[in-house]
Structures are given as C-alpha cells and as structure tokens.
Computed example of a mutant assay.
Amino acid sequence: MDESRARFNDTLLDLSRLIDDEDLLRMKFKSSGEVNIGKKQGEKITNPLHLFTALEERGHLGPHNTDYLKTLLINCCSGKTDGLRVLESYEQRRDTFANPYGNGYLPAQGYTAVPELAPQPQTVPASGPQVVYVIQGGVDQQINNFQQNLNRITSKRKDLDPEITFLTKSLGRDWKFYMRALGVHDDDIEQVSCDHTSLREKIHQCLSLWLEQQQQSASKYKLIEACRHSSVQRNDLATKLESNQL
C-alpha cells in the first residue's frame, strides 16, 4: 500500500469515529439515489466504513476524489464540523505533498477551484519562484450557509411538531400509504422500515425525512391532503388536523 493510500485510509477511519447513527442514516438516504446504492447493499451498510467502501466502488470517493464525501459531511451531519475539519486537513496535507513548493498552495495553471468559491490569488515571497497560486478555501462559508439552512429547517420542524407527534401516534398500519402520498420515495420508506423495529419510530423517522427533503415547502396543508389521498382515506385524521384536535 502506498503512502498516499495509507493516509487516506487513516482519514476514513478517523471520520468513521465522528459519524453517529443518525448522521449515517442521513448520508445513506442522500447517497442512495445519487450514487445508485441498491436496497440490498444499503441494508448491509451499518457503519460509515461500509458506506465509504460503497462510494469508492462507484467511483465517488478516493484519495484524490473527496468532493462528494465533503458534500455529505456538510449536508448530513446536523451542522457538526469535526468530520469536515478532518477531511479538510487531509486535503490540505494531500495537496501539500502534490505541490513541490509546499505551503498547501496549488499552482493556478491547470487547477480547478472548488465550485462556487472564488479563488484568491497569492504570490510567494520574492526570494522564491515567482508563481501565482490560489488558496482552496471557503469551508467556513459553506458551513455558515448550511447552518442557516439547518436553522430554517429546525424552525419549520418546531412549527409542525404537534402535527408530526399526532400523526406518529395515529397513523398505524396505514403509514406506508401515507408516506407515499406525501412523496417519500419507496426506497427511503423501506430503508427506514429495515433500520427500525418500532412502528412509531418508523413513522417518526419518515416524517423527519420528509421535513428535511421539503424544508421550507413543508406545510400543515400537505399533511392534511395526504390524509385525504385516495390510497390513504384517513379523513378522520384530516379533520382533527384541520380543527387542531390533536
């Protein structure tokens, strides 16, 4: 095993210790559709290292291919930055080894900046080679944007908390039909069903996933309409939601 691969494996091991079960569940949900991880393999992913292996097998992760993993860490870890910092530190060390001039800078020629981040030009001291460099950065801004988005989702979740609690207790055996009526994907429903044994926990996790997917579009109206859907026909629940008899 070469040295660069060993450093990469050590980084993945460090990351795996910082990703909890809820983070992993969100990462599996997000990556299942984006990188085509099938249901059968998804069921076998019980720790972060299994997920990393699946991403590598599909060409979405490697020692020099960490952008997708960074996206997962930003979007799926509830604003926690420890894992992102570990990956960022690895990228800086990796780029330092790749750059003969050191200092963590990459030559501007042939270098593609991180999408949506404006590169900042910087020159080395006069005593060294007169080459223009760009600094790869902007993680703090990405985290800040994610945190703002997370705050909006949290606020929406609090607004709908009484309705979510009521549906968690009341849906019963109709819950899968209801989730489909809401627009939750079948693969996500089945993954939640496999990951949890309690019926109420399955319902709550699916509703939480729906809130994350809908974000600001989530509304009490959509919850009520799903109750009235032809495949659900729970007008009793819809009436109680409308009249706030929760």
Rank of each mutant, 00 (worst) to 15 (best):
F8A: 04
N9Q: 12
N9K: 11
N9A: 09
N9Y: 06
D10T: 14
D10S: 14
D10R: 12
D10N: 14
T11V: 12
T11H: 06
T11D: 05
L12S: 03
L12V: 06
L12E: 06
L12H: 04
L12I: 07
L13K: 11
L13A: 08
L13C: 03
L13W: 04
L13G: 02
L15N: 06
L15C: 08
S16D: 09
S16A: 15
R17S: 12
R17Y: 10
L18A: 10
L18C: 11
L18F: 05
L18G: 04
I19T: 07
I19H: 04
I19F: 04
I19A: 02
D20N: 15
D20W: 10
D20F: 09
D20C: 15
D21E: 15
D21H: 11
D21C: 07
D23E: 10
D23T: 09
D23F: 09
D23N: 14
L24I: 05
L25P: 00
L25W: 02
L25M: 06
R26V: 09
R26Y: 10
M27S: 13
M27A: 13
K28E: 08
K28S: 05
K28Y: 02
K28F: 04
K28T: 07
F29A: 06
F29C: 05
K30Y: 14
K30A: 13
K30G: 04
S31H: 06
S31W: 07
S32H: 09
G33Q: 03
E34G: 01
E34T: 10
E34A: 14
E34D: 13
V35D: 00
V35T: 06
V35A: 01
V35F: 02
I37S: 01
I37M: 05
I37Q: 02
I37F: 06
I37E: 02
G38S: 15
G38W: 13
K39S: 15
K39D: 14
K39C: 09
K40S: 13
K40N: 10
Q41K: 15
Q41S: 12
G42V: 12
G42Y: 09
G42T: 12
G42P: 09
E43I: 13
E43Q: 13
E43F: 12
E43A: 10
K44N: 10
I45E: 03
I45F: 03
I45N: 02
T46Q: 11
T46M: 08
T46S: 09
T46V: 14
T46L: 14
T46C: 10
N47F: 05
N47Q: 11
P48E: 00
P48T: 02
P48K: 00
P48S: 01
L49H: 01
L49A: 01
L49D: 01
L49G: 00
H50M: 06
H50V: 08
L51M: 05
L51I: 08
F52Q: 00
F52L: 01
F52E: 00
F52S: 00
T53M: 04
T53S: 08
A54P: 08
A54M: 10
A54I: 14
L55C: 07
L55G: 03
E56S: 11
E56T: 14
E57T: 13
E57G: 07
R58Q: 13
R58S: 09
G59V: 12
G59A: 10
H60W: 15
H60F: 15
H60Q: 14
H60T: 10
L61V: 03
L61Y: 00
G62R: 03
G62V: 08
G62K: 03
G62P: 06
P63S: 09
P63Y: 02
H64R: 15
H64S: 13
H64D: 14
N65S: 12
N65G: 05
